[in-house]
Each structure stands twice: as structure tokens, then as C-alpha cells.
């Protein structure tokens, strides 16, 4: 005979089933959103910014949103990385610009968000932390990957301008946007099992 313990354990640091499932489902839907962005918006926006190409960095946050939203909901180590990797694999399997290499970007961005959350010991999930996480993801993506893969021939001024655009976008679209998205989802009543 087992006594069923109905006490809530949402404060525990270990992962519950709902944590895995919500992170994964959120990521699949946002992955579809990222794919739609790549397919319908990426080229027109590129043309729009063709005179000042580094402004294209202002789109960066779109691709880091799953990491930050996932972390803000689940609030456990690894949530950002899991959500970002799943979202990227959906984006890739539906067909996006960069194909399989998007998964390395996802790994870098997810890890950067985890790093910021580690600094605050996974205790703070406010707007500032979200924005900083977005900026960290931009730094990781541009410095660790894009600087040598895409922009090896450009001047330092160009690279820094591009980096700044990515950081702004990471903070605003991914950070503030992710934070607002989670707030709206909470208002819609679908995050009942998660801490406020």
C-alpha cells in the first residue's frame, strides 16, 4: 500500500515530467515560428537592410527566443539549452537558411543563456536577467562562430557594429520579448504548474 503524496514540489531543482514536456512543446511551436520567419521574412528584411548590411543583426533575437522563454518558464538548469536545441532542430527539419549548422548556433546560444542563469544561481528570472541572457547569446554567436565563419573578410568596425546590432536584438526581441511572452502565457492560464 503506497500513501500518495499530493504535496506540490515545484520548488525542487530536479526536473519534473511537466518541465520536460512544456520545454519541448514550447520549443516545437517556436521552432515552427522560427522556420516561418526564415521562410517569409528573412529575405525581405535582408533586402531592406542591404545598404547597411550589419543592421541585419537586429533580427538575431528571433532565434534566441526559445532559450530565454524556456528558461523563464521551467527555471531549471538545462531548460534553455533543451528548448533552443529542439526549436533549432524543428527549424532545420522544416528547411531553413543554414541547414544543419543551425544546431551549432543553437548550442552556443543555449549555453550562453545557461551561463547567465548560472551566474544568478538559477534564482533570478526577472526582466534584467532575461535581457542579459539575450546579450550573452549574441556575444557567443557572433564572437565564437560568425566572426570567423561569415565575417572573416570584414573590418573590425563592421564586425563591432554587427555585434552591437545582435546584442540590442538579443536584449529586446529575445530578452524582453521572451519575458513578455512568458507573462502572457501565464495570464492565459497555461502555466499553472510553474512558479510565478
Amino acid at each position: 500500500m503506497n500513501a500518495i503524496n499530493l504535496a506540490s514540489n515545484s520548488k525542487s531543482r530536479s526536473w519534473r515530467v511537466i518541465d520536460f514536456v512544456i520545454a519541448a512543446m514550447l520549443a516545437v511551436v517556436l521552432g515552427v515560428g522560427m522556420w516561418a520567419y526564415d521562410t517569409f521574412a528573412y529575405a525581405p528584411v535582408g533586402v531592406l537592410f542591404s545598404a547597411v548590411p550589419w543592421l541585419a543583426g537586429l533580427q538575431f533575437g528571433v532565434w534566441t527566443l526559445p532559450a530565454i522563454a524556456g528558461a523563464m518558464i521551467v527555471r531549471r538548469p538545462g531548460a534553455a539549452l533543451l528548448a533552443e536545441l529542439i526549436a533549432a532542430s524543428v527549424e532545420v527539419s522544416l528547411g531553413n537558411t543554414w541547414g544543419a549548422t543551425s544546431l551549432y548556433s543553437a548550442l552556443l546560444q543555449g549555453a550562453a543563456v545557461e551561463l547567465i542563469l548560472l551566474v544568478v544561481l538559477y534564482r533570478n528570472f526577472n526582466l534584467l536577467v532575461a535581457a542579459l541572457a539575450g546579450i550573452a547569446a549574441a556575444l557567443a554567436e557572433v564572437l565564437v562562430y560568425e566572426s570567423w565563419a561569415y565575417w572573416a573578410g570584414t573590418s573590425t568596425e563592421f564586425l563591432l557594429s554587427y555585434l552591437a546590432a545582435c546584442m540590442v536584438s538579443g536584449a529586446v526581441i529575445a530578452g524582453v520579448g521572451g519575458w513578455l511572452l512568458v507573462r502572457a502565457l501565464r495570464a492565459a492560464g497555461v502555466l499553472g504548474a510553474f512558479a510565478k
Binding site: R16, V17, I18, F20, V21, I22, A24, M25, L26, V28, V29, L30, V32, G33, A36, L181, A184, L185, A188, V190, L191, G192, A193
Partner: peptide, 17 residues
């Protein structure tokens, strides 16, 4: 629309969990 889709999916995620 994406937000509406997200709400639907997260609702069913509760059932899946």
C-alpha cells in the same frame, strides 16, 4: 496566431505530461 497556437500546445502538454 502563433500565440494562440502556443496556448493550445501548452494546454495539451499538460495532458501529455
Amino acid at each position: 496566431s502563433l500565440f494562440a497556437l502556443l496556448v493550445q500546445s501548452l494546454r495539451s502538454a499538460g495532458e501529455l505530461a
